[in-house]
């Protein structure tokens, strides 16, 4: 262990974070109305691909970003948890729309609506709005990229496990 190792480690961090933040692969996972806006963000006009985040994957095993777009019901909550656990580390979650943030318009009488997806999975970025505009989602993704860029890439003895808060 020489003093030089540290320098290499820091560079590693930078390189890995740079790579990860610019090639986020979101999970194709629409729940309700917000999903339509998520699709619109990925489509022609807003073109999420410009931000290095357009490769929507249909299987959680190939994805590292989960955009929870829509109302999370109690029946769906356990499935979301399962999908989250199937995603390989490191992984991030964006909660899109009031519904997945806190129950949205269904917060009061919605006996079958989970009041916030953060009750089942950890959330990195919350996007407000019902539904949020595509620009808002893009902003959220850029914020997430900023967050990834300052993250410590190599943690733990094996692999690059995400630091648990």
């Amino acid at each position: 262990m020489g003093p030089g190792d540290n320098v290499v480690m820091t560079t590693m961090d930078d390189v890995l974070n740079w790579g990860r933040s610019n090639s986020l692969w979101p999970l194709t996972f629409g729940l309700a109305c917000c999903a339509i806006e998520m699709m619109a963000t990925g489509a022609a006009d807003y073109d999420l691909e410009r931000f290095g985040c357009g490769v929507f994957r249909a299987t959680p095993r190939q994805a590292d970003l989960m955009i929870v777009a829509g109302t999370v019901t109690l029946k769906m909550a356990s499935r979301i948890r399962m999908l989250y656990e199937q995603m390989p580390d490191p992984k991030w979650v964006i909660s899109m729309g009031s519904c997945s943030n806190k129950g949205g318009p269904y917060w009061q009488e919605g006996y079958h609506v989970l009041k916030g997806v953060d009750r089942v999975i950890p959330v990195d970025i919350y996007v407000p709005g019902c539904p949020p505009r595509p620009e808002t989602l893009i902003e959220a993704i850029m914020m997430l990229q900023k967050k990834i860029k300052v993250q410590e890439a190599a943690l733990g003895p094996i692999g690059f496990a995400r630091k648990q808060a």
Partner: peptide, 9 residues
């Protein structure tokens, strides 16, 4: 999976 309690509301 998307039962959002419309009638109750």
């Amino acid at each position: 999976y998307l039962h959002r309690c419309f009638e109750k509301h």
